Amino acid sequence: MADAQISIEAITDKNGRERFVDLGRAFAAQLEHSVPQLRSEQLELVDPAKNPFFGHARAQLFIAHRDGKPVGRISAHIDELALQMSPEQGFGPGAGMFGYFDAQDETVASQLLETAEKWLRDQGMNRVVGPISMSIWEEPGLLVKGHDHSPVIMMGHHPAHYAGWIEAAGYTRAKTLYTYDLDITKGFPPLVQRIVQSGERNKRINVRPVRKKDWDEEAAKILAILNDAWSDNWGFVPLTPAEVAYTGVKLKPIIHEDLNMIAEVDGRPVAFMLTFPDINHVLKKTGGKLFPFGWFHLLRWLRKPSGSDMRVPLMGVLKEFQNSRMASQLAFMMISYIRDNAAARYDSTRGEIGWILEDNQGMVAIADTIESTINREYAVYEKSIG
């Protein structure tokens, strides 16, 4: 039932975007184990003039007020590239999205979701998928398991009760995303070691660290492989050239050559694995602020993130090699080399792999084979609004 005391404001300017971001930060600050992120980065993600996602998408941000006080927020957005995908891959014609969902109570949540649905319906959409904040490559899904520990770099962290509120509004789960926890102080099982050794005997294969001095070219190679390797996956939306360039610039400061690998076959890049030190380790100390002294801690950490947890957000093998013996060799060689470097050179003890789709049999099998365990689950919901 609608609450007459609640009003919904549509955000139309820079000041509104700042209030939208700051409201999300205020909600996050109340949540145990949440880690404050850099405000400047959060503002950039919702700024159409700065985030190339808006080159193929349109969005409307909303803030809910009760008695003049902000009590919730949500985004409604439409990705034109997602509309062109097959419905079997999660989106397709008529599929809009919601994201950046925060609410003080279930009544606020209900009215925010209704508002986002109405905006999407008015734009010609007949289905809603979410939460996705805001590109599928940024922060997909709602945390539904793993609230008892802090997230790592670029991972969402949400109150447990949000799931019930979303489901009460008529949403059903479309897909589950897993993250896996890995003890990197231990060696890999004998099977993995044998696969790595067989790959090392194959003279066609060369697994090398990325070259940071050539990072723009390296990033383009990696993201080209990604666009091919993930093209049949649920939720896939291709990255545009502008997004590739933007992502490369954003990732460069956290790239350490020996933690990121490109695999070549006959001199041709065919696979990659990215690993990021967990910058949240620093953001906890600085409160997500660069000034007055946060920049010093951040720069010092970026040079040598000793003792940091590691996150593997992305890896991929060109489709032509998938489901082959060589694909296993490439994957386990990259994983093994990065694990060894993280433990020996950075004193890391823990890694996190994900997101991984629940039905991505290849990646689930890899995660199981290296004896990692699920530590977080994210749910993506959908609802018909036609």
Rank of each mutant, 00 (worst) to 15 (best):
Q361E: 10
V265Q: 12
Y346F: 14
W165I: 09
A365G: 06
T286H: 04
T179I: 04
I63A: 03
A168C: 05
M310N: 00
E217D: 14
P52V: 13
A4K: 15
A2H: 13
E371Q: 11
N323Y: 12
Y346D: 09
P209C: 13
G72H: 07
Y100K: 01
L31Q: 13
W230L: 00
R204E: 13
K383I: 09
E41M: 05
W301Y: 14
R311V: 02
M310G: 01
G187F: 11
T185F: 03
G156M: 02
D47P: 04
G72C: 05
E9G: 11
G362M: 01
G141Q: 08
A327T: 06
L298Y: 09
G94V: 11
S7A: 10
M155P: 03
A174M: 14
E44P: 01
N227D: 13
R194K: 15
Q84I: 03
A59M: 15
V71E: 12
S7Y: 09
E117Y: 09
K203F: 04
T247P: 02
V282P: 02
H256Y: 14
A28R: 13
Y378M: 00
G170S: 09
K175Q: 12
M363E: 03
I153H: 06
E382F: 15
P241R: 08
Y162D: 08
D102A: 05
A29I: 02
V144W: 13
I184R: 05
I6H: 04
D183G: 04
V35H: 07
Y246S: 05
G267F: 11
S110L: 12
G146Q: 12
L31D: 02
M97I: 00
I366W: 11
L314Q: 07
L191G: 01
K14R: 12
N126A: 02
E32T: 12
A342W: 10
S306D: 08
G248H: 12
Q60C: 05
Q111A: 09
E114M: 08
F332W: 09
